[in-house]
Amino acid sequence: MREILKEAEAHIQDGYGRAQEHAKQPLPKRFYKEVSTDEVGGKHRVLLDGKPIKTPGKKTVEFPDPKLAQLVADEWAAAEEKIDPSKMPLTRLCNTIVESGEEHLQPVRAELLKYAGSDLLFYRADGPDSLVALQRQHWDAPLEMFEREYGAKFELVGGVMHVMQPQESLDKIDALVQRYGLFSAFAAMSITSITGSALLAIGLREGHFESEQVWTAAYVDENYQASQWGEDEQAMAARAFKRQDYDAAVRLFELLNPEV
């Protein structure tokens, strides 16, 4: 499964490290003058001097929503002398989605369910008490929502020892995930990979959580460690890069219904 999804997750795995590598390489010069959008057969495209943008695998990128196409067009238009992919998170995400294609939709849905079975929110610290309290503050409410809205109750455990979750609860999560179309599933996978929590990603997709709530919940442990030992400059830079990808996926959620 992980091999199938390698490309699907490539745009966020070790994102800061890849950005550093890109920084060492010469960026391509801007080769176009005009950026525009059009519609063909109900699909929307971004045009560079009248030619549609393509993925690295030469697939034409088509968007299900004109606002999404315009946001991607804005990223291309913002490039001045050089084209810097690290500053084009929506372009990178949409390229990943189109390049992967419908044949990878079901594997991505399956991977979301797999993550949900061993979610970040289940595994709690044994101490210190201040960290335990923070985890309860930010992680209990999302789990309570899933139980209240969907009847999905999960088991919590101290430490990292794996705990099997009730199959009935996982089936209810799967029913949500199976509704997701290509763009929603890949955006949810991106958020899951960034946050470590499929449940946070799914709750955000379903409109139960706010984006800042999810972002804060994802970094409870890291923020606690930083409060105790100080911030690590490289870790914070990596988080800032991931935040670009996170915001891109959230924006996609805002524009598209879950079936897309």
Score class of each variant (00 low, 15 high):
residue 92 R to A: 13
residue 43 K to M: 14
residue 135 Q to P: 03
residue 237 A to E: 11
residue 85 P to R: 03
residue 104 H to W: 06
residue 1 M to C: 07
residue 153 K to P: 00
residue 33 K to W: 08
residue 226 A to Y: 08
residue 219 Y to V: 00
residue 205 R to Y: 10
residue 108 V to T: 08
residue 162 H to R: 15
residue 207 G to Q: 09
residue 113 L to M: 11
residue 150 Y to R: 08
residue 43 K to I: 06
residue 34 E to Y: 12
residue 81 E to V: 00
residue 196 G to C: 02
residue 195 T to L: 12
residue 200 L to Q: 02
residue 70 Q to Y: 05
residue 55 T to W: 14
residue 1 M to Q: 10
residue 217 A to L: 09
residue 59 K to E: 09
residue 35 V to R: 05
residue 130 S to P: 11
residue 167 Q to D: 12
residue 156 L to M: 01
residue 99 E to N: 14
residue 249 A to L: 02
residue 162 H to L: 09
residue 94 C to R: 01
residue 226 A to D: 14
residue 234 Q to A: 06
residue 48 L to N: 09
residue 131 L to P: 09
residue 134 L to D: 09
residue 74 D to R: 15
residue 30 R to W: 04
residue 17 G to A: 11
residue 79 A to I: 00
residue 17 G to Q: 12
residue 124 R to Y: 02
residue 165 Q to P: 06
residue 204 L to A: 11
residue 136 R to F: 12
residue 259 E to S: 00
residue 136 R to K: 15
residue 130 S to V: 12
residue 22 H to R: 15
residue 39 E to M: 13
residue 67 K to P: 03
residue 260 V to Y: 04
residue 218 A to D: 03
residue 195 T to Q: 13
residue 90 L to S: 03
residue 165 Q to Y: 05
residue 61 V to G: 05
residue 39 E to L: 01
residue 246 Y to Q: 03
residue 1 M to G: 12
residue 75 E to W: 07
residue 13 Q to E: 15
residue 60 T to D: 10
